[in-house]
Nucleic acid binder design. Sequence first.
DNA 1: GTGAATAGTTCAATAGATTAACTATTTTCC
DNA 2: GGAAAATAGTTAATCTATTGAACTATTCAC
Lengths: 153, 153
Amino acid sequence: MDNNTIQDLIDRYVNISFQVHKKAEALIKNQLGNELTNDQHYILRYIHQTGECTSTELAEVFQVNKSAITAIINRMTDRGLIQRTRDEKDRRVVYLTPTQEGVELFQSAQEKVHQLVESIITQFDETEITTFINTYEKLAQILDNKKQEELGE
Amino acid sequence: MDNNTIQDLIDRYVNISFQVHKKAEALIKNQLGNELTNDQHYILRYIHQTGECTSTELAEVFQVNKSAITAIINRMTDRGLIQRTRDEKDRRVVYLTPTQEGVELFQSAQEKVHQLVESIITQFDETEITTFINTYEKLAQILDNKKQEELGE
DNA sequence: GTGAATAGTTCAATAGATTAACTATTTTCC
DNA sequence: GGAAAATAGTTAATCTATTGAACTATTCAC
C-alpha cells in the first residue's frame, strides 16, 4: 500500500468506527429503554452465554478494572438481576449468575436488540455482510495480539 | 438468506462489534494516557476537522443531550483546550474552537492514534481492509436512516 | 408584537471508571 | 511446615459522562 492510501484508510477507519459505534449504541439504548443500560445488557449477555462467570473474567472482557465490575454487579444485585455465589473449593472466587428476573429481562432485551440488528443486516446481501463480519472477527484477533504485545513490553 | 444464517450473523455481529469496540477503545486510551479521555480526543478531532462547531452539532454527532456536551466542554475550557466564542449575528449560538494548547495536544494525540491504527490495518491486505471500510461506511448510512425512521414514528 | 422555536446552561441524580489500600484466601517454595 | 508471593474480590475517594427538567436569552413566524 502506498502511503497516501494508508493515511486515507486510517482517517476513514477512525472516523467511521467512532460514528458507527455512537449510532449503534444510541439505537440499542433506545430499544432497551430505562430497564437496562447498554453495559448491563452486555454483562447479562456474557453471563447468559457462559452460564457462570467471575468478576475477573468480566473485567478482562470489558477491559476495565475489577473495581468497576464490582460497582456494576452491586447495582445489578441490588436490582435483583444477578446473584453472587462463593466457590466452596476456592473461597476467593465468587460466581455470578443471573436470577430468574435477570434471565427474563435479558431475554426480552435480547429479542429487541436482535430485531434491531436483523433489520440492519438484512439490508446487505449475504456475501457482503458475511465478508464484513469475517474481517471484523479477524480484527478482534489482531487487537488481542496487539494487547498482548503491549503487555509484553 | 435463510433464518438460521440470519440468526447466526446477528449473534456474531452483536458479539464481535462489542468486543472490537472495547478492545480498540482500551488500546486508544492506553495511547492517550492521562492527558485526554477518549471522548475528549474525539471532540478535539471533530472540531479540528470542521474548523468550528457548536454544542448542538456535537450533541448530534455524539448522540447525547446538549447538557452532556456542556459538561465536557466546561472541563475542556477549564483545562485551556477549547474556547467559546459567541456569534455576533445570532447571539444564541456559541462557536467552539481549540486553543493553541488544544491544537498541540490534539496533534500529538492524533499521531499516536494514527500509528496504532496503521499498525493494525497494515496487517490486512489492501482489498480486504478497503472492502471492510466501504461496508462500514454503508452501515453508518443505514444506521442514520434507521434513526430517522425512529424519529418519524 | 406576541407566541413558538432554537441555542445553550444549570442542577440534581445516576452510571461507569480509576487508583490505592484493604481482606481473605491459596500457592510457591525453601 | 510456614513465611512470602500471588490471586480474587471489595471499599473508598475522586473523576468523567450522561440524563431530564427547568431555566435564560435570543430569534423566527405570522
